[in-house]
Every structure is written in structure tokens, then in C-alpha cells.
Write a protein that binds this DNA or RNA. Sequence first.
DNA 1: TATATAGTGAACCACATGGTTCACCAAGAT
DNA 2: ATCTTGGTGAACCATGTGGTTCACTATATA
Lengths: 111, 111
Amino acid sequence: MVHQDVLDRAFAALSDSTRRGILTRLGEGPATIGELAVPAGMSLTGLKKHVQVLEDAGLVTTEKVGRSRQCSLGTERLDDVMAWITFYQGLWERRLDGLEAYFTLKKGLDK
Amino acid sequence: MVHQDVLDRAFAALSDSTRRGILTRLGEGPATIGELAVPAGMSLTGLKKHVQVLEDAGLVTTEKVGRSRQCSLGTERLDDVMAWITFYQGLWERRLDGLEAYFTLKKGLDK
DNA sequence: TATATAGTGAACCACATGGTTCACCAAGAT
DNA sequence: ATCTTGGTGAACCATGTGGTTCACTATATA
């Protein structure tokens, strides 16, 4: 799928624990590819790809400084992701309400 | 990756708009594979696979009734997903605080 | 200037994903 | 008893993903 919307890319970027780890690390401040690669136990090339995915999703910004690349948390605040989750939880709660209504009705009919 | 944790599976399941559409539809009440396949413009087999992904993530439960299969919203409330997003937004806000502190400091030094 | 270091791109690999068709089975309808 | 319908599993296909190695560039450092 070449054409993914913002939600697709954001959710996909977050579906990997290595990438979530990178975000967590960057929450403490910027880091280079190498500094991120060591704790991830991964090659520079491999880690770079993860950063690319995060950058495409707007979760990370990078800047080449000297011979290394500084990675920082990006501009995407995940508001849309949060909104979708909240929306879903609304559906879910209403589903529960429906079940409760059903059982209440059933109880009423039983007695 | 065979061993995915709950977050991995949940985020991955939500990273596809067809699947998010299925969840939205199921928020209005249960539906069969066929009823879900029509609006998705997809074969029964294709749609069944999406439902399987959602079921593996705990987002959907299904039950065979007669010759059709009833799909409903599952037990996964996405609390952990919500928690992660909230955690991330915390990181992000603190990052902003850091920038603000920096500029405040810089301003102080400039004058 | 020579050497070490940080990152990058291309090529490759195994496996996952998102879809299809086809053959089949079980359950309803006639 | 036959026919139709809803769903399923297997096989297949193209593309994506998560990782590697290797050759290379560009920047520091000695």
C-alpha cells in the first residue's frame, strides 16, 4: 500500500517495540543514529530504517550535524490517533450499554 | 515477527483503514462476514482475514451462528494503547517545555 | 596527508500482508 | 433430495517489512 493516510502511518509506526523504544529514548533528548543503535542491538543501517519510518510518520525529525545525524521527537502530537482511540472507546462503551440494556430488559421479562 | 505483544498487535490491527472501518461498523451492532464484505468491496475470504487480524488483537469476537458468522466488538478496550499514547504525549510536552526553557534562558542572556 | 568514524544506499534474504481464485462444506430453502 | 448460499482453507501473487552485509562518502582526528 503506497498511499497511506496519517492514521495508517502513525499506527503502523507505533506497532513495533523497537520504534516505540526509540521514541521513549528521544523523549529524554536528542540522540544520534549510533546512540540509538547500541541499546537496540542493531546495525546502523537497520536502525536508520526505523528512524526513517518514524520520520515519515512525523514522529521524529532529524538533522545532519557534522558526520552524525541528530534525531529528535517530531511535530506529530498524535492528536488524531488519540481522537480515534477515544472514538473507539465510545463505541465500545455504548456496546456495553446495549448489553446492559438487554440484560435489564431480560430480567424484567423473567420476573 | 511471530512473537508480538499486545501493543504490537493492537497498533498493527489499527493501522489499516479497512479494519478501522470494520470496527466502526461493529460499533453500531454485530454483523456477518458478508455484511462487512459488501461495503468494503472485498471478497468474503479477504474480509475474513481482516476479521481474523482484529480477533487476534482482541478487538473483535466472532461466533458461528447457522451458516453465517456473527462478528461483534471484542473485549479489548485499548486501555494499554491509550496509556501509551498518553505517555508519549507526556514526553512530547516535556520536550516542548525544554525548548521553552531554552528560549527563555536565551532571551535572558540576550538582554 | 593518512586514518578512523558515522552514516548511507544498494542488494539481498526470509517472512508478513493484503488481496485474489477455486474447491469444498455445512446450513437453509424448495 | 436437490439447490443455493455463507463461509472457509489452500494455493497463489505482488508488495512490504525487518533485518543483514558490503562498498562508499563525508567528516574528524592524528
